Computed example of a mutant assay.
Amino acid sequence: MITARLILLLGIVGVTSANEVGLGGKVLVFPYETDFSFVALIPQKEMDLRAFTLCMRVATELEGERQIILFAYRTPDYDELNVWREKDGRIAFYLSGDGAFFHLPPITTFRTSLCLTWESRTGLAAFWVDGRRSTYQVYKPGHTIRPKGTILLGQDPDKHLGDLEAVQSFVGEVTDLNMWDYVLPRSQIQALHYEHKITKGNIFDWATIEYQLNGNVMVVDDD
């Protein structure tokens, strides 16, 4: 169900579409940078998380010293879970404060299978690129991601209900975004990379995901 917060955000940016369900076999295309194009995602369960696995396939031709937002989840006062390509090319994620930064193979015009895992109990965090795990970092043990926020692809809301910036927007393609409220084992992350069937995401399942398109975002067949 769309929350009142999401309805207000959609109204502020000025362009909305009907609620849609399911992106199996589809790709989201963000053709050029804007301060108004995004996709709002509606989770299947509250984002009250002490662990997660977030996976997607992503491609971009953006180069140079430019931030690119890959995933944004914000509650009224905090960026609860943001994933970025930083200006220096590192991939980072932020849980309500300073981030954890990883030197990974670059995201390019050729699609990259990217997963992120984190658990509160130990603080262990890692990225997975095309089925290969980075080194672990210990990041925010004991932390909890708070619920009742807004989840966007394509833009970073600097406030809960707006302040979108074209120079941080995503340009490129996203597909196969799935999320679980626990850390997937290596075998399942690698199986996902090779497009084998695994347990469906219990927060986001690309085949049944609920979303809204806003601005100039295209849904195309995954040829």
Rank of each mutant, 00 (worst) to 15 (best):
M1C: 08
I2H: 04
A4Q: 14
R5P: 01
I7E: 15
I7P: 02
L8P: 00
I12S: 08
I12Y: 13
V15P: 02
A18D: 13
N19Y: 13
E20V: 03
V21W: 09
G22L: 13
V29G: 01
Y32C: 00
E33F: 11
D35T: 10
D35L: 05
S37W: 04
S37M: 05
S37P: 06
V39I: 14
V39A: 09
K45N: 06
E46A: 15
M47N: 02
R50P: 01
L54I: 13
L54V: 14
M56L: 15
R57C: 11
A59R: 13
T60D: 05
Q67N: 09
I68A: 11
I69G: 12
I69C: 11
A72C: 15
Y73K: 12
T75Q: 07
T75G: 07
T75M: 06
P76N: 14
E80F: 05
E80A: 04
R85E: 09
R85F: 08
A92R: 08
L95H: 00
D98N: 13
A100C: 12
H103Q: 13
L104E: 06
P105E: 02
P106F: 07
I107T: 02
I107P: 03
F110S: 14
R111L: 07
R111S: 11
L114V: 10
L114K: 10
C115L: 09
L116Q: 10
L116E: 10
T117N: 03
W118R: 03
E119V: 04
E119P: 00
S120A: 14
R121P: 01
R121L: 10
T122L: 06
L124A: 13
L124Q: 12
A126H: 04
W128Y: 12
G131I: 03
G142A: 08
G142H: 08
G142T: 06
H143R: 06
I145N: 09
R146M: 10
K148G: 00
K148A: 12
G149R: 02
T150M: 07
I151N: 01
L152G: 02
L152D: 01
P157H: 10
P157F: 01
H160C: 02
E165W: 14
V167Y: 15
F170C: 02
T175P: 00
L177P: 05
M179A: 15
W180H: 04
D181V: 03
V183N: 04
R186D: 13
Q188K: 11
Q188M: 10
Q188E: 15
I189M: 15
I189T: 09
A191D: 12
K200L: 03
W206M: 06
T208Q: 12
I209F: 06
I209L: 13
E210Y: 02
E210C: 03
N214I: 08
N214L: 05
N216S: 11
M218D: 00
D222W: 09
